[in-house]
């Protein structure tokens, strides 16, 4: 299975830095290393979950993939029908065309819809751009899209303020679907919603994927959501992917000490599952000057001298099953073998 997988996006050594400016002349005094050397493959038709704490670079990763943030270096190779092309190297014109395949659903359903436009107005521009010229055709298309996300089609004449948070998020999803994309980046798409509404939207995501064969990059900080929706999960810490595995494998054989601590910190709504927390000391270090060596070493209980000097590489380890388990830790083998 690993051999002949259909890779949609191949990210190699992606770095996105933001300059820190200071003083009268706005001189650059440092860089926020939001994404710091990420290698990742997104397989067609899968849901790849990206989890991590705030400030770990998960949103920047999503935005760098669809080129809403220009990456500092690295490649984002996207499998177009006529071969792989680097999105990071494209000019604006080529990107405009490419964006038909890549869409994003934002976190906040209140600020991502223009309040001055009706729903039809918000949908109109992308449809016009991608070929549907006549107004009646566009109206029919918007109607179909709204029905796809379980909203009545006459809602298209309304303004965003007439909708609740859950409905707005569904409109946001419908808008992302309007150009028939292949990849949708969902940036904390359900985090702002109330629990009862969250289930509706999560189910909708799953149904749409089954219907249209969509690929999702699902960015969230909520591990229970990511477990429910993802096929594979990438765990990020300080701009780097520290662990990547299939969902079940990740939860069953957690290797990286950070992932272990993260999993143990999550409150579980099930009294039968109470377990020991692994408390993490301190806060996430600043991405302006991350610690040398393994980014996690100042908070890691297993820290050894080598962790302070050498950056561990994301390495693939074979598991019992078909897929590989990628971990960036010097002692991954010890954890896998259970000697620690």
């Amino acid at each position: 299975m690993e051999k002949n997988k259909d890779i949609l996006v191949r990210i190699s050594n992606l770095r996105t830095y933001f300059p820190v400016k200071k003083g009268v002349f706005r001189r650059t005094v440092g860089q926020v290393k939001a994404v710091d050397g990420v290698d990742l493959e997104i397989i067609r038709g899968e849901t790849l979950g990206v989890v991590g704490e705030s400030g770990c670079g998960k949103t920047t990763l999503g935005k760098s993939i669809i080129q809403l943030c220009k990456p500092t270096s690295g490649k984002v190779l996207y499998a177009f029908p006529d071969g792989e092309k680097d999105l990071a190297a494209m000019n604006d014109k080529a990107l405009d065309v490419a964006r038909k395949r890549l869409q994003i659903v934002f976190q906040d359903p209140y600020s991502s819809l223009n309040p001055a436009f009706t729903i039809f107005g918000s949908f109109s521009d992308p449809l016009k751009k991608f070929g549907i010229k006549s107004r009646t055709d566009r109206e029919a298309a918007v109607g179909r899209l709204l029905e796809a996300v379980n909203l009545p089609k006459d809602y298209m004449t309304r303004y965003p303020n007439e909708f609740s948070g859950g409905q707005r998020q569904r409109i946001g999803i419908a808008r992302a679907l309007s150009v028939d994309p292949e990849l949708i980046v969902c940036d904390e798409a359900v985090s702002a919603l109330d629990v009862s509404i969250r289930a509706q939207v999560l189910k909708l995501f799953k149904e749409l994927q089954a219907e249209r064969g969509l690929t999702y990059l699902f960015i969230t900080h909520d591990l229970s959501v990511v477990e429910y929706i993802s096929d594979r999960i990438a765990v990020m810490y300080l701009g780097k992917v520290v662990e990547l595995a299939e969902t079940q494998e990740l939860f069953r054989n957690t290797v990286h000490p950070y992932t272990k601590a993260l999993l143990s910190a999550i409150p579980i709504a099930d009294l039968a599952q109470k377990k020991k927390r692994i408390p993490l000391q301190g806060d996430v270090p600043s991405p302006v000057n991350p610690p040398a060596g393994c980014p996690f070493h100042p908070r890691c209980t297993y820290c050894q001298p080598i962790c302070r000097t050498e950056v561990p590489k994301l390495t693939a380890y074979p598991t019992g099953g078909t897929a590989e388990h990628h971990v960036a830790c010097h002692f991954a083998l010890d954890f896998l073998g259970g000697t620690r």
Partner: peptide, 25 residues
């Protein structure tokens, strides 16, 4: 009952059945 059925619980895997509460508050 409905609230507890509508939240994904960690450790219950990908195939847990979420039952959204219909309508809204």
């Amino acid at each position: 009952i409905a609230l507890l059925q509508s939240i994904p619980v960690l450790g219950h895997g990908k195939n847990q059945n979420l039952e959204p509460i219909r309508g809204m508050t």
